[in-house]
């Protein structure tokens, strides 16, 4: 992980959230927004593979684990801001929407985007994770030891 100028941390967070969101859900939330700006492509959506790595023994030196499909794109909206997206899978519309939100988050509309797109996505993702963690929790073993009554 590398970090650059301030503001980077926030951008990392929203780009990560957008990449991990369900394509249909992001599409639905963006569909409710008014007047989305036109954009021109700096890099039209492109599907490729990213090699994932693991570490030997979980913590040691890296090894190649296998690839994952990823779609990336870069666009510029009419007001000049540039949006980037790298998202898992092969959905070009999903990458486009993620890049569009990335660009809009750099404009005066960021509060609107935060409220209507990012916050709901984050809340839903957190809730889904919590539901899974709770189901896992219900499968945690409670051991009890039989007392043999010898002493």
């Amino acid at each position: 992980m590398t970090t650059a100028k301030p503001g980077t941390e926030a951008r990392r967070a929203w780009m990560s959230l957008l990449a991990k969101s369900a394509p249909a859900r992001l599409g639905a939330l963006i569909g409710e927004l008014d007047a989305l700006p036109d954009h021109s492509w700096l890099r039209p959506p492109e599907v490729g593979g990213v090699m994932l790595r693991g570490r030997m023994g979980g913590t040691g030196a890296p090894f190649n684990l296998g690839e994952m499909t990823v779609t990336r794109c870069a666009l510029q909206i009419a007001s000049g801001e540039i949006g980037h997206a790298y998202v898992q899978g092969r959905d070009k519309d999903h990458a486009t929407r993620a890049a569009l939100v990335d660009a809009l988050m750099q404009t005066a509309r960021q509060d609107e985007l935060r409220r209507h797109v990012l916050d709901p996505l984050e809340a839903e993702m957190t809730a889904a994770k919590a539901r899974r963690a709770a189901k896992a929790g219900a499968t945690k073993v409670d051991f009890f030891t039989m007392v043999r009554g010898e002493d």
Partner: peptide
């Protein structure tokens, strides 16, 4: 598939199990 690049090694210690 064109190879876009490689990811950081996954942190399995932080796995949501």
């Amino acid at each position: 598939l064109p190879r876009i690049g490689h990811a950081e090694p996954v942190d399995t210690g932080a796995m949501a199990c």
